[in-house]
Write a protein that binds this DNA or RNA. Sequence first.
DNA 1: TAGATTGTTAATCGATTAACAATC
DNA 2: TAGATTGTTAATCGATTAACAATC
Lengths: 215, 215
Amino acid sequence: MCKDLVNIPVASLKRIPTYLSVFKSLKEKGELYVSSNIIATLLNENASVVKKDLSYIISQVGKPKVGYDINSLIKDIEGFLGYHKLQDAVIVGVGQLGAALLNYNGFEQYGFRIIAGFDIDESKINATSSQKRVLPLEMIKEVVSLNKVKIGIITTPSNTAQQVANTLVKAGVRAIWNFTPSHLEVPKNVVVKNENLATSLAVLSKQLQETLKEN
Amino acid sequence: MCKDLVNIPVASLKRIPTYLSVFKSLKEKGELYVSSNIIATLLNENASVVKKDLSYIISQVGKPKVGYDINSLIKDIEGFLGYHKLQDAVIVGVGQLGAALLNYNGFEQYGFRIIAGFDIDESKINATSSQKRVLPLEMIKEVVSLNKVKIGIITTPSNTAQQVANTLVKAGVRAIWNFTPSHLEVPKNVVVKNENLATSLAVLSKQLQETLKEN
DNA sequence: TAGATTGTTAATCGATTAACAATC
DNA sequence: TAGATTGTTAATCGATTAACAATC
C-alpha cells in the first residue's frame, strides 16, 4: 500500500507538534540521535506509540541500537505539518482575544498568517493599536475570495458565531477555527476545530477536585 | 456501587459544557424537555453517547416518551462543573495572550476568577491598561499561598514555562493551565491541561488539506 | 393501547500497549 | 559477538455504537 494513502489517526497527529518541540530542544543540546524510549520518557508516553507515530512521517528509518536522526526528524515534521508554506487566514471579531491573536506573529512559525481582522464595531476598524488591518464585516466576502483564503477564525460573541461561519463559508473558507462555545453547523466539506476554553476548564477543574480529594 | 465513586471518563467530561450551551439555548426558545435523539442531532453525535454522558450527572431520570427536564439538566451540569463557587487563579506572563485572558471577565461564568497577573517586565507591572493587578514574579509565592490559589495559568515564552511551573507548584498550585508549547514536568499530585495552539493548528490544517484534496 | 424514549447490556470499533523477530 | 533498538504484529483496553426490555 502506498504510504501517502494511509491517513494518520487524529490521536497521533495531535502528538506530532509536541515531538517537534522536544526534538528542537534536544538538537540545541547538541544531540544527534534519539531513541523512542527517550522520547517516550520525556513526554510521559509509551515507546510503542512513539515508534508508530514516527512511522507515519519519517523519510528515513531509525537505526537499530542508535535511534532516529534528529535533524531528519525535524525536517520531516516541519514538512509534514507544512510549516514552510504560509497559509493565509482571516479573523472575525476583534475583541480582547481576537486582537491578541490578530497581532500575535508567532503563528508564522506554524505556517500560518492572519492577513486581516473583521469587526462590526466602527471604533475598532483601522484602530491604531493594531498593526494589522481591521475591516468592516461587509468586506469579508471580498477579502476572502480575492486572496483565496481557506481558513477563518471566529472570536466573536457566541450568539453571532453561526452567522459569521455562514458568511465565511459562502466566501470560500474551508476550515474554521472556532473560539466561541457555540456548536457550528457547516457543510460536509468544511472542517471545524473548536477551541473551547470552557471545555478545557471543565476538564482541569474536575481533575483538580479529584487530586485534592486524594491528598 | 455508589454513583459518586464512578468517575466520568474524560471523553464524556469534555462534552458536558457543550450540552450545557445547547440546553441553555433550548431553554431560551421556551423548550421544557429534550430527548437524547434531539441532543445528538444538534451536536452531530450518537444518542447512546448522550444518554450515557447524562447518566453520570443527572439527579432525576429522564421520562420515557418525553425526555429530560431541561431546567433540571442545566442545574445539574452547573452544579457538576462547579460554576457557582468561584475558584481563584493566577496568570504568569502578561503578554498579548496573557493580558487578554487576565482582563477577560467571561471566565467568572465558568466558576473561575483570575485574581492577579505576574510578569518579569517592569513596564507591565500595574500598567494602567489592565483592570487587574500585575505584580512582579517575586510575589507569586506570597499571593498564591496567602489566597490559597490552586490554579495557575502559564502564558510566558516557552523557554521559561518549566521554571514558572516549578515556582507555582512550590507555592501551592495544584492545577496548571499551560498555554505554551512546552511539555511540563510536575509532581504526580499536580494536574496539567495543555492548551497547545500549535497542536490545534496542526489538526486543522491537515484536515483542511484532506478536504481540499477530496473536492 | 401503541409507540416513543429511557437506561443498560452486548457488539463493534479503534487506539494503546506488549511482545518479538530482524538488524546493526 | 552480545545487546540495544527498530518496525510490526498480536493482545489488551476503553470508548462508541447498536440493540432491546422496561416504562409511561
